[in-house]
């Protein structure tokens, strides 16, 4: 009981005003992160402006844990570009290079075939059953920039969730207990 009582006292001794200030500053941090992310979405026109490379299929260009910046412009898709695409029935988007393009004369629709630089064959095996080409709506964006290693943070956090909770807890504690 003594320990609980002491804790209660120390909580009570925090002035309400100070607690509110800490809560607001915590909220500011969370919302500003959200604002930056949403702003990036608007600027790049891609639903996920930054992706982490998860496989080695584009080595040695992109390794596992590298970060790619995506851009989704109105420009037509051309061979050689590195695109991020979603295949129906697969949750995780794939980052591969376009090797064939067929663009319709009348509608401007494109048929695209992709391949990973490090893979032996093209991606038809990865596509949905019987799918020969990717269309525009499968493509989430094209890679325009590159930052090595930074993505390891998210890979580690998704594979070892405990680290994520420890990190979030520690940061939260830091913000709440910090006195200007």
């Amino acid at each position: 009981m003594g320990w609980i009582g002491e804790t209660m006292d120390s909580v009570k001794s925090l002035q309400i005003r100070q607690v509110l200030t800490q809560a607001v500053s915590l909220g500011m941090i969370v919302t500003s992160a959200l604002i930056i992310w949403k702003a990036l979405m608007c600027i790049t026109g891609s639903e996920s402006p930054v992706v982490v490379v998860l496989s080695g299929s584009m080595e040695p260009g992109f390794k596992r844990g590298d970060i790619l910046f995506l851009h989704m412009s109105k420009d037509p898709i051309r061979a050689g570009e590195i695109v991020v695409f979603n295949v129906d029935g697969r949750e995780i988007p794939i980052v591969h290079r376009v090797i064939k393009v067929h663009e319709r004369e009348d509608t401007g629709e494109v048929d695209v075939l992709t391949k990973g630089d490090n893979n032996y064959g093209d991606d038809r095996l990865l596509y949905a059953h019987g799918q020969l080409w990717l269309q525009r709506h499968h493509i989430m964006g094209r890679a325009v920039g590159f930052l090595p290693y930074v993505g390891w943070v998210t890979i580690i956090m998704t594979e070892k969730p405990i680290i994520k909770y420890i990190l979030i807890g520690a940061l939260g504690l830091l913000v709440i207990t910090s006195k200007d």
């Binding site: 061979a79 064939k100 393009v101 663009e103 319709r104 004369e105």
Partner: peptide, 13 residues
């Protein structure tokens, strides 16, 4: 039918 066809024939790193 197609205003553009691009077919990669060879590539290298």
């Amino acid at each position: 039918k197609n205003s553009l066809n691009q077919i990669s024939l060879w590539d290298g790193i």
